[in-house]
């Protein structure tokens, strides 16, 4: 997995609440057996018309935000399905950090598995960053995972919380399966005990 340490980039504003996984990556693009190449279809139905032409006023089509690496989004971002194609598409587009007041549970988990940092902040902080993001390409934001801070274009600093284990994995680009395999004796022992206690499973 790619490491996430410190990121300075353009933040794109998407204030709409309840942006769901069907919006992030419509199901027609789920028929792939690969993880890559989905960035071009990120937010497909909001981003393109039926003929495949870009819709000008969609945020990621505006010149200022084409290279955005941070998304500042409305409440309950990523609700809906478990499709990991959503974070795959976000990552493939080039976005490595999403900031909102809340995320749907499965989407939130999926981000960490793909080197994306989702950050939950109180409404006033998200409002402030949304204002910053609205200023376009000249206003870059710095996200520092080690120190758990976000620095806006005016130098104002916001701190954020992140689970210590997940932070460790992101900072070091660790692979979950490898980490779990190191605990295989615990899993073996559990299986043995469980087979006695609940042999019908």
């Amino acid at each position: 997995m790619d490491k996430f340490t410190k990121l300075t980039g353009i933040a794109a504003p998407m204030p709409l609440v309840n942006i769901d996984t069907d919006m992030i990556i419509p199901k027609v693009f789920l028929k792939t057996i690969k993880r890559s190449g989905l960035g071009v279809n990120l937010f497909d139905e909001m981003r393109y018309d039926r003929e495949g032409n870009e819709i000008e006023d969609f945020v990621l089509n505006k010149p200022a935000y084409r290279n955005a690496e941070i998304l500042v989004a409305g409440d309950n971002f990523g609700c809906g399905s478990s499709r990991e194609h959503a974070p795959w598409a976000i990552k493939d587009f080039g976005i490595k950090c999403v900031i909102s007041t809340s995320f749907a549970d499965i989407f939130y988990n999926n981000c960490f598995k793909n080197g994306i940092l989702p950050i939950v902040l109180p409404q006033e902080d998200v409002d402030k960053l949304m204002d910053d993001a609205n200023r376009g390409a000249n206003a870059t934001v710095t996200v520092d995972l080690e120190n758990q801070t976000i620095t806006g274009p005016d130098g104002g600093e916001i701190s954020f919380e992140v689970d210590a284990f997940r932070k460790h994995c992101l900072l070091n680009g660790l692979d979950d399966i490898g980490l779990t395999m190191e605990k295989s004796t615990s899993i073996d022992a559990f299986e043995e005990t469980a087979a006695q206690a609940r042999p019908w499973v």
Binding site: E84, N110, I177, T180, S184
Partner: peptide, 11 residues
């Protein structure tokens, strides 16, 4: 998610 599917398959 799919990464977790792989995790469960493996572990």
């Amino acid at each position: 998610g799919t990464s977790e599917v792989e995790h469960v398959l493996a572990t």
